[in-house]
Write a protein that binds this DNA or RNA. Structure first.
Lengths: 339, 339
DNA sequence: CTGAAAGCGCTTACAG
DNA sequence: CTGAAAGCGCTTACAG
């Protein structure tokens, strides 16, 4: 049991060259099964572990993909990561995850710098949106950047839901249930790419049904899809002169904030206010009332993101938008059985 | 803008040696501020990024710490990670996170293998418990292993709450509120280190109050602190002949399962059954009723775990148990105002 | 304050 | 099927 054994140690013991040992350990080239067995046994006995720094330095290829995440506590990203791990494992890829703040470009930049230094061959951004400068840095370093479960209008590929469709379908769903005065809560509708798209879908659905939209139906809150936005929205709607009968909450968190806020002022869901959330995370079925939601397929997004990264002939300049289907799950925060 | 510029490129342009450039970029040794400025400017202009593989290979020190996590969706681990990142940043340490399955030693082993190959200087296990063999592997590779937000009786340090005290205090809290028939739900009380400790604390509190314990008050379920265990516990207690007035749920998830299960059979919390959970995650304040909980300080655990890793004179053979204080938060799933 | 040189532990043509 | 040799891009005594 040597402290930090190396290939040369194995070679010496086996009476071989380092080259042969390397080939055997990596399954490259030709070698006799007999010596291979011996070599592996020795490696095991002396406690050999490949030094990846040396291997990565020597080899032109790197099979590690980097993931940049942030500690969200919603569970959606955990689903994405499951998908990523699954697909990475199937393809013999390593995954390293690093954290950054969601909207802090300096924090994202530092993390990206680290990823570049590690020479990963692709970087997946999980619900994290880097600015154009950071994206360009990555591309110049010949590393493929990609957003997952998030989208933007930057020069970057993404795997996500179609947010316009989400806004559109969710609103239509509410309209079909008989709701006309429909609030829109929690997203930034002027700057934020996702917010804008969902909002435009919402507007289109309203327009198609000849519902005259009212600016006062919109409550952005912090514009970050937060629980607090939902809570505050209740104050906003309850104290103001505007009446709404349903709300499209732009996240499950915001939906839960609305639901709790309503409960705390003694109002009933869905009778006093119907609510549909977006995401379809665990909380939707674990809350009482269970939350009707636009359910996104986060796991599949993770898988597809990896597939996209290893797609043959992928070019560093490619900008592709992959859309993953979503579904609407009727639960208890919207009326039952109506159409 | 060279594709993958290296130190030698900077050196050539600056008319210096690679050695000097390396020193300047790393802030080692002496050099004139003037040349330093020039060198950094050049590095910037040609788009230089350190090749960490080369640096790590050449240098005997490595300032990366590895974290092994699993996708839990509860938010507790996200809190731990926040603490880890904070403390790591303060100390100029890098953090890479890798995922494994929580209870699958083979999956954990593969991840650990990867960490060893990367020569991290310490590995933090987040709510993941490696078996003794894996721990020994790490130590033999001269890498310090440590559990965070979890504990075991293996030869490994941990930073966690005192689970005996959690069980003891939570049970006493219920007893002080006037509950005598107290269930214990969701943990494995024979094999699982945490479960055993919480259970023993529970037993001691009962004994101190002369309450005769009843084996039928125990419902382990899957023994994994799951939501499903809570749901199933409702069936178990409702259908059986045993009456209990309160439950110590061994996680927030299990508590929520109990609460929802009771609601689904038309029973009232806390009148028909009082519930206290363990963890104190987001769900406790976002659920209605809000969940009384033993609240653990996960963020502090993360910080302390890093501090422990970089403690001066730390030896690879050290096995230290660091206990982080917890608190009990009275909310709506236990009676108000009683003592 | 600066440089020449060795070395970190692998991998990979190349030659046999 | 196997080996000698060069090279990956850094860092670090050592010498000046």
């Amino acid at each position: 049991m040597l402290l930090r054994a190396k290939i040369a140690d194995i070679a010496r013991i086996a009476g071989l060259s380092s080259a042969s040992v390397s080939r055997i350990l990596n399954g490259h080239g030709r070698y006799s099964e007999e010596t291979a067995k011996r070599v592996k046994k020795i490696a095991d006995e002396i406690g050999y572990y490949k030094n990846r720094s040396a291997a990565d330095l020597a080899s032109p290829t790197n099979n590690t993909i980097g993931v940049i995440n942030y500690p969200a506590e919603t569970g959606a990203n955990d689903q994405v990561i499951r998908g990523i791990m699954e697909e990475a494992n199937h393809n013999g890829l390593d995954v390293i995850i690093m954290m950054s703040e969601r909207d802090d470009q300096e924090s994202i930049g530092r993390t990206v710098q680290n990823m570049i230094e590690r020479r990963v061959f692709g970087v997946l951004f999980l619900s994290v949106r880097p600015d154009q400068e950071i994206i360009d840095k990555l591309k110049q370093a010949n590393i493929y950047p990609q957003e997952v479960a998030s989208a933007s209008d930057h020069q970057i590929s993404y795997v996500s839901s179609n947010d316009f469709q989400i806004g559109y379908q969710a609103t239509k769903f509410l309209i079909n249930q008989g709701y006309h005065e429909i609030g829109f809560v929690g997203a930034d509708i002027s700057e934020d790419f996702i917010g804008v798209n969902r909002y435009q879908g919402y507007q289109k659905a309203l327009a198609e049904s000849r519902i005259k939209p009212d600016d006062r139906w919109i409550f952005e809150g912090d514009g970050k899809y937060s629980y607090e936005s939902g809570i505050q929205a209740v104050q906003y709607f309850e104290q103001g002169p505007i009446r709404i009968s349903a709300v499209l909450a732009t996240s499950d968190d915001a939906a839960l904030g609305l639901i709790n806020g309503m409960a705390d002022v003694g109002k009933h869901i869905p009778d006093d206010l119907a609510v549909i959330g977006i995401d379809g995370t665990q909380v939707c079925v674990r809350n009482r009332p269970q939350i009707t939601s636009v359910t996104q397929n986060f796991r599949l997004m993770g898988q597809m993101a990896v597939d996209e990264l290893i797609r043959p002939n992928r070019k560093i300049t490619d900008v592709r938008q992959i859309e993953i289907p979503f579904s609407i799950e009727q639960r208890e925060t919207t009326k039952q059985g109506l159409r």
